[in-house]
Amino acid sequence: MAKNKISLIKEFTKGLWDENPVLVMLLGLCPTLAVTNSAINGLSMGLAVLFTLTSSSIIISTFRKIIPDEVRIPTFIVVIATFVTITDLTMAAKFPEISKALGPFIPLIVVNCIILGRQEAFSSKNPVGRSIIDALGMSVGFTLTLTLLGAIRELLGAGTIFQIQIMPDSFANWMVMILPPGAFLTLGFMIAGYNWINDKLKTQ
């Protein structure tokens, strides 16, 4: 029992650090690079993925024994697309401003490799509880990374984080950071930083 508990925690934390979907697996880079020009956009995208991934994982791990192997991919896609559409419509109806800012990237979650990847690699083989933990860990890792990426870009590119002024007035905004090249540069540095910290941790 104790052993099981430890591994559940590990199931959750692996998505945060060891198997971080963005920094280690480099999955879902399309929304990662495209929408993170501000912290709020990064966070919203993360939460949209969190909802989609967790719901799809619940459904798929529940019915994992019924779904025949031959049609598992189309079934997964239908389930994922359903939840993406739910997210898309709900956001458009309830939070039109955020929905407008994220534009086509909400519907594009359907082709986000993280989601299909987790179904294929995890929830189609594991019980519901464990699948939820795995999905939550992955999507929280994704959300945190995107929010951090968005915050760094927003700070350097607009002098603010979550629209709160951080930099002094004399700071000249680095426009490039909120443009696409800024996403590549920042992500590169984040991955480099991740590897550097990881090396330090390992050698200790």
Binding site: I67, V71, T75, A81, L89, T90, A92, A93, K94
Partner: peptide
């Protein structure tokens, strides 16, 4: 059967959601 049921449920669910969301949008 599995694929049909899945898509059917998905379609029914989404059309309910749509009838709620569309007027709001």
């Amino acid at each position: 059967i599995v694929l049909t049921v899945t898509t059917l449920l998905s379609g029914i669910g989404l059309s309910f959601l749509n009838s709620w969301a569309q007027p709001k949008i």
